[in-house]
Design a protein around this nucleic acid. Structure first.
Lengths: 340, 340
DNA sequence: ATGAAAGCGCTAACAT
DNA sequence: ATGTTAGCGCTTTCAT
């Protein structure tokens, strides 16, 4: 038992020696139990437990060329991405895979870093949750099939993507405002270099046109997907004359920022100005007043992405892209425009 | 170049062959450049890039018995833990380590899972961010020095801990309320099985006693660290007579829940009832009215934990436990009690 | 059902 | 400065 006391140094051969059997027998008992006799199985298990044997995963991974673990890279630790990750974790566990999370900061260099983790066999595959067009990964793709993107509306030929229809969701948000009677609707958008932001802005523009609204009365501003940016953009909007009667923010975070600005001006949200967001995060639900927003099943998106990844890993044909529905969640921040 | 085209199969020897040199030369050029000639270095680098060589990390890890990566296990994806993780990431990067995040759900089984990841050499060390007393890990500790706990006020002999003084912070929160003139202060606490919750409750009780308040007027309720629980507990508190004039919630999440209940009752927060939280999360800052709370440097806590872990990995004596200060952030939810 | 032996891709003595 | 060789701990033929 002297071996067992040495830190982290209990190897298969230590267990084998203690039992007077060969390493392969121990290996089999531990990972292919049906290949050994009942008696051997029990003896090995008992001894392995007693000696606190832990397999050296580096060795196993090297030998089997697989790690049974997947990487999920998210742009940031925003609740939106965290929900997607939760789904990924659930689905992976159901297939016997572990998942680790990393964040990219939407930085191409870091995205490559994680891609390299897979190429370097630290993980079997990668789900890249992204709001940017990952076209820059295209050249890598050829030598690297084990990737799926999620959430982004862009896409690279050959890389499966699990997404939502951002443009349609945005259009539905605007349609809701139009139905309430709004004619002057502004858009507070995300960074145009992000395909997700572009898709939502496009949906906005399309719906404005479809409703026959005057484009000049429906400004489309671009900022960042942050609370501060939403607040800044709204502040600017409030100086316009005539003021918009409703605002569609590209995500809930910006919507909350916008509402902060509106409150500061002493205006009533949902009466003087309607606000609608996108993503359906808890922060919007808790806000006073609770935010009307466009929601979708984030957990399911994570599940689908992992399912597609594992399917690919198992050699099943990469399924075509799939899109999840986006639904309107009416709460307290949207109402008919104030009479003028 | 045929080799290079095969997916993920460019090995050191492929590069070596293409160059007509030995594998060790390529290995050295890539990881100990000063050991090869300038010319060789350039040729190797060029060829490695051209062939898209990626080291097989499983092989390297096996050989070097180190992964240069650390695991940070958090109880959940609460913003509090995410901030700590950010700090961990920063500090790790500064030492050339990567960090991966996993979440335990405060589940001992899962904590062991991640511990096993380290014992199995998938990572070099583990930071266990926890709100529970990790005493149950004690027996493992002997064979496993590469661990540091963070945030928990409990602790296991021999496992370094980087924490905050929860009891002192809680006492300071109560002292703030007492200074404002409150005499009937309630505590909405977390689960007593979590040492963190116990510490904060203890600080509350101590401060109440120190201020000479009537204990019967200062109820101490226990629930979960969730918004819903804070709301439920506050609802119960509001039926008491005489009603408490102030509430100290064990974290911001519960404080927000409590405020939802107070609002529902039509009472004015900060006037009819004061509320103070703990953790200083953004949700409290954004709430209307902004929450008074006890804050601390979460990023720094993460940094300290990783620094201690790496110090231990390098064989430097595990430093004694260290505690970070907790400071009062006065905002709008605390004020003098309404005249009675 | 079990054992012997090869080898995954890499690094690090050791030799030249 | 470079090459040769051994071996990290495991799984998996191939024998028996």
């Amino acid at each position: 038992m002297a071996d067992a006391d040495r830190i982290g140094l209990v190897r298969l051969r230590d267990v084998a020696r203690a039992l007077g059997v060969s390493v392969s027998t121990v290996s089999r008992a531990l990972s292919q139990p049906h290949l050994v006799s009942q008696e051997t199985l029990e003896r090995v298990n008992a001894m392995a437990t007693r000696m606190r044997y832990r397999p050296n995963l580096a060795a196993r991974d090297l030998r089997t060329r697989s790690t049974r673990s997947l990487l999920v890279a998210v742009p940031s630790f925003s609740p939106l991405f965290l929900e997607i990750f939760r789904g990924a974790e659930l689905e992976a566990a159901a297939h016997g895979y572990g998942v680790l999370m990393a964040h990219t900061g939407s930085d191409a260099t870091r995205e490559h870093m994680f891609l390299d983790q897979v190429l370097s066999q630290r993980a079997d595959g990668l789900v890249l949750v992204t709001t940017m067009d990952p076209a820059r990964l295209a050249d890598r793709r050829k030598s690297f099939p084990a990737m799926v993107t999620a959430l982004d509306s862009g896409g690279v030929a050959g890389v499966p993507c699990r997404q939502i229809d951002n443009a349609a969701g945005a259009a539905a948000a605007v349609a809701h405002l139009v139905a309430l009677g709004h004619r002057r609707i502004a858009h507070i958008g995300g960074p145009p270099e992000q395909s997700l932001a572009r898709a939502r802005a496009r949906g906005f523009a399309d719906a404005v046109a479809a409703a026959g609204l005057v484009a000049a009365h429906c400004p489309c501003l671009a900022g960042e997907f942050s609370l501060a940016s939403g607040e800044a953009l709204m502040t600017r909007l409030l100086t316009r004359y005539p003021r918009p009667t409703a605002v569609f923010a590209a995500n809930d975070e910006m919507a909350v920022g916008a509402m902060q600005a509106i409150k500061r001006d002493g205006l009533r949200i949902g009466q003087d100005i309607s606000v609608i967001g996108f993503d359906d995060l808890r922060i919007g639900l808790l806000y006073d007043p609770p935010l009307t927003t466009m929601g979708f099943d984030k957990v399911q998106l994570g599940r689908l992405a992992i399912a597609a990844l594992i399917a690919g890993l198992n050699g099943r044909a990469a399924v075509a892209d799939a899109s999840l529905p986006v639904t309107l969640e009416v709460r307290a921040t949207t109402g008919p425009p104030a009479g003028e």
